[in-house]
Every structure is written in C-alpha cells, then in structure tokens.
Amino acid sequence: MDEAGDLVVTTTRRAISRIAFVAAETASRFERESIEHDPMAWLFAPRRIFEGQAAIDACLERNDFQRAILLHGLSLGLDADREEIDDLLDDDEDELSSYHLDPAIAQYRSNAQMRLYSATIDHQLAGKIQHGFHASMASSMGEFRSRVADIFGTEIVNHAVLREGVNPKVRMVEGLVAPEVLETLVSVPSYSGRRVAVTAERIVELDS
C-alpha cells in the first residue's frame, strides 16, 4: 500500500523502460536456465556489478542497464565484478549492437579468438510454433548473429536468445539435440581451434 513517506523518484519514460526491460530479461533467463532464484529478489538485492546498488535503482542509468543485459545475455552468473563487465563492454565500444530493443547495448566480442556460441529460438506466429537451435564457432557475437540470421532468417533472429557456450540444461536444447551431440558441444571450449556446427529445428503447425 502506498504511504505518504514513500521515496519519490523523478525519472524519465526511457529510464523506466530500462528497468522494465531488465526485469523481463532477468525473468526470461531464470526460466530458460532453470535458475531457482526469484527475479524480483535479484532486482532488489545489492550487487557488486552496480557498486552495491540494487538493479531496480542502478539500471535507471544507461551504463548499468548495459551491464545488467550483458550479465544475463552471456549467463555470467548472478553477479560479477564491475571491472570485468566493463572490460567486455570496452572490447566492443565501437560496434554498438541492435541486441533486443536498445541499439546502444554493446555486445561481447572476443577479438579474433574463436569461441563456441549457441542460439535458441522459441517463436510462435500465425498458427506456427518454431523451435530452433544452432551452435558453432565464431570470432565474435556479431559474426555468430549474422550466421544465425542466414540460417533461420533475419526476422527470426530477433527472437533468438544468443549466448557464449552451450547450456545443456535448457529444456529446449535437450529436446532438439541428441545427448551425445550435446556432450561434444560442451567439450568444445577445451579444444583450441576446433570447428563445429550443429543446427536443429522443429516446426509445429497449429489447427486454425
């Protein structure tokens, strides 16, 4: 219940949108990765990544908003050292991304080093449900995103969840990829220079 002594926060619609976006991204990640943690509790708890502030306050500002999206987008845990996150952002400060809704979010880049990336797609439109998965080696998230767009289409890639590495516990991944293939993908980061590519897709037509 609202009280007369409640703290008044003067802000902008853009800043409020950042909080809403971080809240949605947090809940989405916790669900797809089966993280047993309350997204609202995460939003209100002090975090190192925000220098002791809670996300509900810090992410009103653009820089902390970027840090939160990078943390969840790359599945880097529930908290991280601010300097480490800023290093990832600085790596790509000249390649601002259109990731999700804000073109000012910088994506992680690994310079010229090849890394394994994966994408999952859960999209429903016009009576059709499309589930997709792709994993392959790339030198940057941008390169990988372009590859996913080539495979599934530029419209669908906007509904894809991209990350470094593969999380074998995501239910959709378990349903689309054979266990032995998943085991191979999980081991890939240990083999420098190894190149792999796996694509899987399932489309369900719904009765009108």
Results as ranks from 00 to 15, higher is better:
93 E>Y: 11
23 A>Q: 05
3 E>Y: 14
195 R>S: 08
137 M>E: 03
165 G>F: 03
82 R>A: 11
86 D>W: 01
204 V>C: 15
122 D>C: 07
20 A>H: 08
33 E>H: 13
46 P>E: 02
17 S>E: 08
71 L>C: 07
4 A>G: 10
123 H>W: 12
207 D>M: 15
178 A>V: 06
30 F>P: 07
15 A>W: 06
131 H>K: 15
184 T>G: 11
146 S>N: 13
38 D>L: 11
93 E>H: 12
167 N>G: 01
204 V>R: 13
108 Y>C: 07
78 L>N: 04
19 I>W: 04
176 L>D: 02
105 I>N: 07
92 D>G: 13
31 E>S: 12
22 V>H: 06
204 V>Q: 14
126 A>M: 13
33 E>D: 15
17 S>D: 12
38 D>T: 08
76 L>H: 08
23 A>T: 14
139 S>F: 05
182 L>T: 03
3 E>H: 13
205 E>C: 10
17 S>W: 04
82 R>I: 03
133 F>I: 04
172 M>P: 05
122 D>E: 12
151 I>W: 04
81 D>L: 06
57 D>E: 14
94 D>R: 14
104 A>Q: 10
78 L>W: 03
66 Q>K: 14
117 Y>F: 12
79 D>G: 08
170 V>G: 03
201 E>Q: 15
96 L>C: 10
31 E>Q: 12
103 P>F: 04
106 A>M: 07
208 S>I: 14
87 D>G: 05
133 F>P: 01
177 V>E: 01
80 A>R: 09
96 L>A: 12
57 D>Q: 10
14 R>M: 08
101 L>P: 09
149 A>P: 08
94 D>I: 06
42 W>K: 05
202 R>H: 12
135 A>T: 04
119 A>R: 01
46 P>S: 07
168 P>K: 01
173 V>P: 00
64 D>S: 15
193 G>Y: 02
146 S>D: 07
107 Q>W: 09
152 F>Y: 13
100 H>V: 13
189 P>R: 01
157 V>L: 07
160 A>L: 06
86 D>H: 01
197 A>S: 15
117 Y>D: 00
203 I>V: 13
151 I>G: 01
78 L>P: 00
184 T>V: 10
143 E>D: 11
55 A>C: 13
172 M>S: 03
112 A>W: 08
151 I>N: 00
178 A>R: 11
48 R>Y: 03
16 I>V: 15
43 L>Q: 00
118 S>R: 03
105 I>C: 09
113 Q>R: 14
181 V>Q: 09
90 D>P: 02
79 D>C: 11
22 V>M: 03
57 D>F: 11
147 R>C: 02
153 G>F: 08
190 S>R: 12
61 E>Q: 14
57 D>T: 12
64 D>M: 13
3 E>G: 10
171 R>H: 02
82 R>P: 02
109 R>T: 00
58 A>H: 03
187 S>H: 02
179 P>C: 01
127 G>K: 09
186 V>M: 06
153 G>P: 08
180 E>N: 11
93 E>Q: 11
23 A>F: 01
129 I>T: 11
115 R>Q: 15
68 A>I: 05
166 V>Q: 00
102 D>A: 14
157 V>H: 09
24 A>Q: 09
160 A>I: 00
91 D>M: 10
90 D>V: 02
97 S>P: 06
